[in-house]
Every structure is written in C-alpha cells, then in structure tokens.
Design a protein around this nucleic acid. Structure first.
Lengths: 350, 350
DNA sequence: TAGCCGGTTGCAAACGTTTTCAAGAACGTT
DNA sequence: AACGTTCTTGAAAACGTTTGCAACCGGCTA
C-alpha cells in the first residue's frame, strides 16, 4: 500500500497546478531560458501561488552537491575564531554556500567526531582550525574521505593540506626585537598551549630574537591562551623582568592584572606585549602594545583557497602566510641603559 | 543507459560484501537488536572494513528529519550571541542535533533571506535572535512555514512564538535604583538600537526608576550597542551628570573612555554602569559595575524549549524570563548629599 | 514530398536511504 | 501431523529532486 504522501507542497503540486510535467518545473527553476515563455510564466505563477521552495535535501541527494561547507574550530565562543569564520563565509556565501560551524571545546577527540559528523552530512568542504598539536585519528579520517579541506590559522603538520596562516614567528620576533631595541634586558615569555602550531611558532620567534641579540636573561613559562593563565603564571614569578611577552593578548592582559596586584606599574616598572590585537586591546588601560594579525583576511583567504579546491582548480600555493604588524600603544616604555653605555658606544663605532 | 554509479561506498557495497540485503544493513545500523547475532557481526565487519558512514542526506530525505537546527543571530562575531548559541547547542547536541548558525549583520532583509534558506535546507527548528524591532516579511515567511521556532533574547512582538529572554526592565531598574540609593541625582541613559525589544525594555526600566524616585534631572540619548556609540554620545554631552547608565557594557566602556579624555574621573566625578557583564568587564580599569545576564542559561533554556516543540510536546510556558543580578565593582561611588541632608533625616524619622 | 534540424516537452531512472509487507524458518502446542 | 507464533530476512516502494533520452512539432532544404 502507498505510504501517505507528504502533504507539503513539492514539485509535483506545482506541476499539477501549472498543468505541466515536473521536469518542466525543474527546468524553470534551474535553466529558465530552456523553457518556452508561456510555460515559464505559468510555472512561475504556480510557484508563487503555492509559495513553493525546492527541497534542498532532495536536490543534494540527486546532484551530489550540498553547497554546504563546515568549519571546525576550537572554541565557538572566541571572537577571534569567529572573525576568521566570518571572513571565509563572506567569500564563500557569494558562491552560494551555507555553513555549519562546530566547536570542539579544545578537545581533539571531539574534533575527529565532528569531522565524521560533517562528512556524513555530505559537506563539500571543511575549514579547520586545529584544537591540538597532533591528532592521529583525525589524520586517518581525512585520508580516505575525499572531502576538500583547508587548514586555517593552525595546522597538523603531518597532514598535507593547503594551509592559510599568519607569520607567527616573524610577528613575535619583530615585537621582541622592538623590546630589545628599547633597552629591555630581561624577559619572560608566557606561552599558550605548548603543542599547538601557533604556540610553537611564536615561541620560536621569541627565541630567535633572544639568540640574535645575545640575550641570556630570559625565561619561558607554559600555560594556556587565557587571561587566567597569564595571571597565574605571572603571580608565580620570583623575579620581575624588564619585559613580559604574552603568547596572546589575553595572556598579556592577565599578566598586567597580576603585576598591578603585585604592586608593579606597567609600563613604568615592566613592559608587557601581546599578540592578536583583539577587539578590546586598544581600550584596555594602559592600551596594549601588541602584534596585529589580519584575522579576517586570513579567513577570507582560506575561503578563497577552499573555493579553488571546490571548483576543481589546482591550488598552486599550498601554504599562504600572511604578515603581521606591530602596533605600539602604551604598555612599553623605553628603558635607560646605564650599565651598558660602553657597549652601546662600541657598537656605534664598529 | 544507466548513469554511472557513484563509486563511493554506500549501503549497497556493505550489503554486497556482507552477503546480505540492504535492508539488513540498515537494520544493523538503526536497530541492531532486531537482527541475528551472526549477520550483525558480518555486517559490522563489512562496515568497519569499508569505512562506511550512512549518507545523512539520503536518510533525511527518506525520514523527513534532518536533525539540524538553525540559528539566526544579528552578529556572528559577538561573543554574547555565541555564548547563547553554545548554551542551546550544548542542550540540543545530546539529542543528536547538528547546527547551522547564520549572522545577519543586523540587516533585517538578510534576516528573512536566511530564514528562507534555512527552510529550504529543511532544518527542523530555528532559534532566532532578532536583528530589528519589526520585520514584516519575516513574519509572513514564518506563518506558513510550519517549522518549529523559538525567539531568544529578542523577539518580534507581533509574532506569536515561544520566547526565552531576560528581564531587561527589572535589571536596569534595579541598577538605577542602586544609583539613586547611593546618592546620584542627575542621570544620562545611553540607549542602543532604539527599535530592538531589549533596548526598549531596558529603557523602560530606567524610566520606571526615575519616575518611582521622582527624579527629573535625566536625559536619554539614542545610539547603538557599541563602544564607539557610547564614546560619541558621551563626547557630545553638554553637562556631565552624576551617573551614566549604558545600554550595555560596550556602551558604558565607551562612555568611560570619553569621560577620561574629557578630564573626568570615574567613579570620583561620575559613576558609570552597564548591562551584560561581558567577559572583559571585570578586567576593565576601573572594573565595571553592571547587570549580569545569564546568557548561557538563556541559550540553554531556548534549546530546551525548542526541543519540547520538536518532540511534539505542548509548551505550556510560552514566555520564559530569566532574572538578572547586579554586580558591584568599581565604577560607582557613593555621593554625598549635602543639599538634601534634611530630606534624608525626615525619611529616617517617618 | 521526404528528410533533417533545432527547440520544447514529458517519461522514467537514479541518487542512498528507511520501512512496510510478506515470506520463510524454527519451534512449540494440540 | 497440522497449526499457530515468533523471529529473521529480503523485495520493493517511497522520499523530492535532476537529467538522459526519446518524442513531437515546425520550419527549412533538397
């Protein structure tokens, strides 16, 4: 016996009302120029009258193209990640895509689970900002999925996929150089999650600067990319350095809070810098000196790269690295260098 | 001639490998207890071997249930909205749902467009935070859609749908009462987008407090819910009041920035309060006194209500209003009331 | 007039599932 | 031995589209 036919309006209702076949209705929708003026009008009228909207599910099943791209990011609540997402969306929505964005809560098991879920939803492409430093099960799923993917901001180095990121190393190196140049002699670096690619790259920039200038009075502390982490790490400091370099703005802001509570003034007693230039950093008191990342552009570019993949083009540039600027505000103060006046002089002469 | 069969693994490949019918494979997946031990094992093995994952699209088409709920929010980049979304997701994902979240950029035309798009994606439910104060085309689409919907945080009053929100009026009234009680005599209220339901409700709370205490020295200024708006409105002030009430935290923070630049000290010269208790407010300098909204809970509750709708239950409570707390930090200072000492005394006596 | 061609149209298959129905097997009861 | 019951299983229909193919209709050429 026939199952009860769903009473909602479908292509058949339209066809019936217009007195044509469903094929014609479909054509009116997808390639109107291929059907005669008269029928086209009749069908359009019927569509209007019934308020018919094609069922995307059926369409997807038939064509094999869902026009959906998924995002996997560590935290759906973090504005920085969402600004990237927005960048990618802004590019891709003009190509007719819809989006599913999923947060892993920094949990790599959840990450693979989400990947699987997205795959069975038949998304056409996925943009991923990794939640950890390595994720072997993730790699396995990716390999035999055949879906188009792009890494954004963070990547798993053992998975060969296009990557759009930011020159973390150069960014931190630049701002650390700036601190050295302005007379700071002792440093503390407050790292975020140590296994993420961005944390590693940023730390590398710091180390490069230290080495380059022959600075030995520095210390590296590991924590997370949060305000609280910056706060706690700083509180534990035995000796206060000339400058604190935060793994990101949140960490830097946490450090400032702690320093204030410990009775130090920023920037008079200590300089502090961050990384990100997040929304609030320019309004903090004192306003944070930091490294500006082109976050939105990064997402936009990732969207573009994914689209190239989706439209079958060969992506020549597998890796796109965007550059950073340093933005000088109020948390760095030029230090006197009384005890090194001599060295300074020599350098000038040589 | 037969179209080329899609070479990706489907239920048929599994059936073939296991030597059973596709019906059996489907049963192994959906109700394993209904198939014999032996076949079940064979099928599971085949699934594992091929890495088969059921095609959700096909499943949705057949069952008419996509297990997707959509969100429409004004700004995908605003952490407050996303915290609500997270709340709802946390509730609904345990019920097996996936999510599509869409931002309108505060544009009501985009809002109806997104609604239509979500509908043709056959989402089962939609949670909406309105972008404007009214949206007639939105209403029209909602009426004959049959999809389950819930308003979250903001609503269109002419559309009868379940609503989960916060007692904006009581919140602002409470904090304004607090200002009056601590001796403030003159007020400025900085409103956000004046047509949104939350802006209206908050303003009402302010007015109630003014009226209740017979205060006449107040002024209401309209702008937007942004830092910049608070800043600009404040800059235009001819006369500085005892207290500034911001339509939200951003506005309040903008006002503080402007006041500082104009040479006034917060809270010594002026008190400032906000609404939201957003992430950064406790770290601002001075830390903002504000109204805490249970944002996450609001989303969680909206998710719960939507689920009741989805599972066919009758929702008895069409409107759920969550209460706010006021959180006292550093931006309010008790004022002397030299010229009213007398009244004060009378009150105590009476 | 026969043949051909381009433009419109409809029929029916296919996309990958779920689910109804009926058939068969195994078993116990009379 | 006949029958009923319960449990497993497979065949086939259906979900709402898109699209290859064939049919038809005019008009044109030979």
């Amino acid at each position: 016996m026939a199952r009860q036919r769903n009473n909602s309006i479908n292509i058949r209702s339209v066809a019936q009302l217009a007195g044509v076949s469903i094929a014609t209705v479909s054509r009116v929708i997808n390639s109107p120029e291929s059907v005669s003026e008269e029928l086209r009008e009749r069908v359009k009228e019927a569509i209007e009258k019934l308020g018919y909207r094609p069922n995307q599910i059926a369409r997807s099943l038939r064509t094999g193209s869902t026009k959906i791209v998924g995002f996997i990011i560590p935290d759906i609540t973090n504005p920085a990640f969402l600004l990237m997402v927005k960048g990618a969306e802004d590019y891709l929505k003009r190509k007719g895509y819809m989006f599913m964005v999923c947060g892993t809560d920094h949990n790599i098991e959840e990450e693979t689970k989400l990947l699987k879920t997205l795959l069975s939803q038949s998304v056409e492409g996925i943009i991923v900002t990794c939640s950890g430093g390595r994720n072997s099960s993730f790699a396995k799923v990716v390999q035999n999925s055949g879906v188009k993917m792009v890494f954004m901001d963070r990547r798993y180095e053992d998975i060969d996929l296009p990557y759009v990121g930011v020159d973390n190393t150069a960014g931190v190196e630049k701002i650390t150089d700036f601190l050295v140049k302005t007379g700071h002699k002792s440093f503390v670096y407050l790292s975020g999650e140590r296994n993420t690619s961005s944390a590693k790259e940023r730390l590398r920039g710091f180390m490069k600067s230290m080495k380059k200038h022959g600075v030995e009075d520095y210390q590296v502390l590991y924590g997370r990319f949060t305000f609280e982490s910056g706060y706690e790490l700083t509180k534990k400091l035995k000796k206060i350095p000339d400058a604190v370099v935060g793994g990101n703005d949140l960490v830097a802001l946490g450090a400032i809070e702690a320093l204030n509570e410990m009775g130090y003034h920023v920037p008079d007693d200590v300089s502090v810098v961050g990384f990100d230039d997040m929304f609030y950093s320019k309004y903090s008191k004192p306003a944070l000196t930091t490294v500006r990342q082109p976050i939105y552009e990064m997402g936009y570019t990732a969207g573009k790269v994914l689209w190239q993949l989706l439209s079958g083009k060969n992506v020549k540039k597998r890796v796109t690295i965007l550059q950073t600027d340093i933005v000088v505000r109020e948390t760095v103060k030029e230090r006197e260098t009384p005890d090194r006046g001599f060295t300074e002089k020599v350098e000038v002469v040589s």
